[in-house]
Design a protein around this nucleic acid. Structure first.
Lengths: 87, 87
DNA sequence: TTATATTTGTCCGTATGTATG
DNA sequence: ACATACATACGGACAAATATA
């Protein structure tokens, strides 16, 4: 289990760091529209955080319309919204 | 079956109380090596907890090598390899 | 083979309590 | 008080594996 670079002491809270990381993956096309994101459980393992923290990160993407979540199924990359969703 | 004594407000969380109870059963020989443990459904009824809580208890035993689980079948007492540590 | 029931596996939604800065 | 994070718990839903009819 290779944990990603998350610094709990950085000014940016972990859930935002994770969100930024996932957004970068989407923008690089590593996560294409319609494709599933890692499950909450996988995110907790990948980043070494609690489930609530992983969920908070997903909430950021959801609020930006970058992903949608299906109960019991997972989260998926939204069908190409508009380009230029920089921070 | 009669529900076991689980106190949701004790310092020890329910899943650990259940794990301790099952471990005691194994150590008393009431659950012999190779014998099936109660199903998750039965554990929820016996202890009055949610399925996830019963699963968390089983996970404790699995991590200690006391049991093994077969998908679609159930969990079984491991063939005594080494004695588990006391808590 | 097909169908059904049981059991475990994997998800997400939500809530509470504790702790820290 | 508030935001953040972790641990724990309950619930619902569906998939996958297994066993049996």
């Amino acid at each position: 289990m290779a944990a990603r670079e998350i610094d709990p002491r950085a000014p940016e809270p972990p859930y935002r760091q994770i969100a930024a990381d996932l957004i970068a993956e989407i923008e690089r096309g590593e996560l294409a529209p319609g494709k599933p994101l890692p499950s909450e459980k996988e995110l907790t393992e990948r980043y070494g955080v609690a489930r609530n923290t992983a969920r908070s990160a997903l909430a950021v993407l959801r609020e930006r319309g970058l992903i949608y979540t299906v109960s019991g199924r997972g989260s998926y990359v939204a069908q190409s919204v508009s380009e230029g969703e920089s921070d």
